[in-house]
Each structure stands twice: as C-alpha cells, then as structure tokens.
Design a protein around this nucleic acid. Structure first.
Lengths: 318, 318
DNA sequence: TTGAAAGCGGTACCAG
DNA sequence: CTGGTACCGCTTTCAA
C-alpha cells in the first residue's frame, strides 16, 4: 500500500474505494499509528493552530479568555498554543519568538506590555495578529477596543454619589510610561474629578492587592474608597482591610474591574466594572479565523464595560 | 551561503568562523527569518514539547500545576502544549489523540476520568507518560501517589473532635464507578466513622458547590459540617450558606481540599487539606524529563496532604 | 482508483 | 570550516 493512499484515507479524500479504505483503517488500528502533525503541516503548508500570549494566566480574567478561545478553537478544529508572559515584556518577546517558529494561523496578544518593535515585526511577517488593550494600533493588526472612559466615569460618579471624595487607586504597574490604556484612563478620570487621590503600585494578584491596601493605610490621608485595577487585586485588598479591622463597605468601599465570576461568590461580593471575557475570547477567535473580507466589521467592535453594584461599596463614612 | 551553514549558526555549532557567523546573523535579521519549528523537529527527530491534559483549567488547583510546569519547562528550554478535557472522558481522549500527533517528549495526564484503554495505548506507543490520581497503575506509566487516606482521616477526626456527627460530602461526580481515588477515600473514611452522611453530586466549580449546598439543606437531615471535594466547590457552598442565612462556622462548618491560594483570601478563610500543587508541577516536569535511570526514585514519591485549619470550621452547634 | 516521485524546511553526514 | 546531499513523514500532482 502506498503512502499516498494512506494519506487520502486519513484526509477523507473521496477517491478511495471502500475496500482499500477499510483495509487502511484496519492497518492504522493494528499499527497504533498516528500521523505526525508536524510533517503534515510542513507538507500541506496550512496550520490550524492559534497562538495566545497572556500577561498572567493566574488572573482569572485572562483565564476566562483562554477558556473561551480554546472551546471555540476546539469546536472548529483548531488548536491553541498558550504562552505566559508573566507581566514582563521580555517574557512576552520570547513567547512571541516561540510562536513565530510555529507558523501559526493567527496570534493573539492579550497583554499590555507589548513593545512597538514586536508589533512591527509581526506586521511585517504578515501573521494575522490581534491585540487587546494596545496603546497604539499598527498596520493591519486588529485591536480590541474597550470603552474604558465611559465605564470608569460611571463607576467614579457612582462612588461620588455615595459621598466618597477621597479615592485611592490600586494598580501594579511600575512607571507611568508602562501604564495600559485601562490604567491611564482610571488615573485620568480620578484626576478630572478633582478627588483626593493616592496611587499605589505593587505586584499583581491577591498578594499584591493585599500589600497595596496595607501600604495605603499606613501612610498619609486615608481614602474612603479604593478602586482596584482588577478584581484579582481587589480580593487581596479586601482580605487586608479585614485584617486591619476595617469593615467593607461601612468603613471603606472597594471596587474592582473585570467582573470575574469569582467576584460574585466572595464576601463581601464585589462591586465591579464588568468586561465580558467570554466576548473577548470569541472576538479573538473570529478575528483570527475570519476571511480577509469580513475583517472590516470585526475591526470596529467596541466593548462596553457594565457597572455591577454589589456589597463591597456603600455610603462614605460620616 | 548554504542551508547547512545557516543551520549550524542557528544551532550554535562551534565550527563556524566568526565572519560567516556574523554574516549569517545579519541576513537572518534582514530577512526577518525564523526557523520553522516543525521542519526542525521533523528533521532532528527530537521534540522538546511537553503535553499537559487537565480536567478543568478553571479549577485554580489545576492552574497552579500548569503554571509551575510551564515555568519549569520554559527555564529548561521546553514548551508546553496544554489541553482541557472539561471533565469528560471523551474530551480527554480527543485531547490525547491530538497530543499523540505531536511527537511529544512527554505527556502528563492530570485528570481522574482516564480510561484504561487510553493508558494502554500510551504505554504501547512508549511515550513517556505520567498521571495523577489514577486508579490503576499501568506498565511503565508513572503515577503520582497522594496519601489521601491519612490526610482525610486527620480532617474527619478534627471535625469529630469539634463535636460534628452529621457530615455531608459535596462532590461533582455522577456514578460510583466514576469516582476518583480522592472521592472514594473521602466516602470510605466518612463511612468508616459511622457518621451520618449525605452525598451530593453536582456540576463542578463555584456554581456546582452552590447548588450542592442548596440541595443539601432542602432535604432530609441537616449536616453540621460539609466536606467539599475541592476548594473550588467549597467557595460556592460558602456563598450559598450565606444566602440561606447560615453563619459559617457558627451554624455549619465547611472544609475544602487542595489548599489553593485563594482559600486563604476569602471570608471566612477556608479550612482545607492542602496539597502542594507546586510540588506536583515539579514532579511532573522531573518525571517527564529525567533520564531513564533516575526514574526509579521519582516513582516512589508520595504526596502528604497537610491539614490547614482556618476560619471556616468550628465547634458543632449545641 | 492507485502508485511514483517531487517537494515542504530543516538537520546531519560526508567530502572537499 | 563550508557546501552538497540524503533523509524526516506527510501531501500533492501526474501517470498508469
């Protein structure tokens, strides 16, 4: 039996007689044979793998995106190659290099620490690429836009209506040049409202949020409300406030960002700006697999955050 | 310039003159060239990709394992191909098929719904494979053992010492044939203590835990303590108890399993049997990459769960 | 309907 | 030290 025939059977080419087909299939079973995916790709030239690089898989928000993308991919016969950039532009670069070697069908960068040079390189290589939260759009690279401004305005106005005037921001980014669009917008809006404002930079996650909260209350004027850059950090902050004997929301209000499913289950449940990670995952998949002609429509997509009010925010004290 | 020379430069073979080397490197930059990982593998025959199939990425415990494995892999020049089985033996099989096509250096199955046939197939193909929580060890396949019995004994004894006699089990598995070693052990130990006992099967995660708790209190005798199969479900259960107006631990005690980092941050913080996911991740990496000769030592490794007592458990009411 | 042979993009051996 | 060349395992013409 020739390799060509086997290939035709495997790929369901319709020119094989039923008898040979069954013969081949039997042999495949008997030999415990699996076609080599790499050789296949090399020969056929088309790849059905999507690359996904995220800042930090640990953040449940990113995880939501991964899950949806994976599910969509799987159900459409794609695979997903995942890489973790660990909130580090070096890690992001090396992940991207790795991805470049894989001849991907498409690459999604869900991270804020993307360097301009990388985008240019990707654009030049003509790999279908999408980014979220990018500061600058480049060439043919699709970028998911989120209407941060309106959402954050709504959140801050809501807090003001509860009497809060001294609000603090909890993020995890070092320099001002490093801030993502989301962070920039929060800072800008807080400033524009002329509220007393304290920024705290710390490491990411539960631990980071916890430390940030501690730091916030150990120095200077105490805020009556805390805006966290994401729910992930907000949960850490809540824990620390409890340890400090502060009651939420009686003494301090806390708001998050993302609307991860966990935010509904913790106590106190978290007031947050919800961004549907599911929608993002689907948008990424669509953008990476859509034919050239349908790309225009995807480009214009803008995500609207939704304010979800729960238990962690309330009237300002006094 | 010949392709052979380029290959030598890329792979840092030490027989290239400095001048040619720089010439090649310049050309690589200029052409924006990246070696094709697939062609490379096909030719060289050795793969530095590790496969990981997990039951459910959403469960933070599995995520811990992923993260550690990825970190170890990256720092040793390996890649990780991740697949989600979605708690479904069908999904697990198809993920495994996919993995088989990739000529992996090794494959880790962290899932309880593994079918015997799959293990046999893997064993026959002589792919280095490790499994966690497997019911039966097979041929050359390494299996990570956890001393569930001792740990669970300790947890149940602790609860008995607090006066609990009516304990309930919250899991998410359908049939008795489907139970993992962990679930089996919990059920066995609960029975051996002759405590009044209610089992509730439901879907996984926060939502599953929540529904299970609701169901538990809507019928029959009310337990004074709930043992959850993992922290992930315990958090859902805690939420539902709060909604029902029950105070934890005053009215009901709740214990989890895994010791995910989140368990320390929620309120009330969770009493749990801690299994170090980090250790598992490292064990997987070591087992998948160790030379044949060092495998013996890894085989004997047994994980000891540690009881971590926190706020969610207390004296039984009355 | 099937088989033979030419690549796909590399690596590795053997000459020069 | 460098170039030529035979593969790696598969897909895809092109003939038979």
């Amino acid at each position: 039996m020739s390799t060509a025939t086997v290939s035709r059977v495997i790929n369901d080419r319709q020119v094989v007689s039923t008898t040979t087909r069954t013969r081949v299939l039997k042999a495949i079973k008997a030999l415990n044979y699996y076609p080599d995916a790499h050789a296949r790709l090399l020969s056929a030239g088309v790849c059905r793998t999507l690359g996904l690089v995220v800042s930090n898989m640990e953040n449940p928000f990113f995880l939501d995106i991964c899950r949806v993308l994976e599910r969509e991919a799987q159900s459409h016969g794609y695979e997903v190659l995942l890489a973790n950039a660990e909130y580090d532009s070096q890690g992001l670069n090396s992940s991207a290099q790795m991805m470049l070697g894989h001849r991907l069908a498409g690459l999604a960068l869900v991270a804020s620490e993307i360097e301009q040079a990388l985008l240019e390189q990707l654009d030049e290589r003509k790999i279908r690429t999408v980014v979220c939260d990018a500061r600058v759009p480049i060439g043919s690279i699709l970028s998911l836009k989120t209407n941060y401004k309106t959402g954050i305005h709504r959140l801050v106005e809501y807090l003001r209506s509860l009497g809060h005037r001294k609000m603090a921001f909890v993020g995890h980014r070092a320099g001002p040049g490093q801030l993502s669009e989301r962070e920039n917008t929060v800072v800008m809006v807080l400033n524009s409202f002329d509220v007393q404002f304290t920024a705290v930079a710390e490491s990411e996650g539960y631990v980071g949020g916890r430390r940030a909260a501690r730091q916030l209350f150990s120095t200077g004027p105490k805020p009556s409300a805390i805006l966290c850059i994401n729910d992930f950090m907000a949960i850490g902050a809540l824990r620390e406030l409890r340890d400090m004997g502060l009651s939420v929301p009686r003494d301090v209000s806390v708001a998050g960002f993302d609307g991860i499913s966990l935010s509904e289950f913790i106590y106190p449940s978290l007031t947050t700006l919800h961004i549907p990670g599911e929608r993002i995952g689907r948008w990424i998949f669509d953008s990476l697999t859509a034919p050239e002609t349908k790309l225009q429509r995807l480009q214009g997509f803008v995500l609207e955050p939704v304010l979800v009010v729960r238990e962690s925010t309330g009237l300002a004290p006094r």
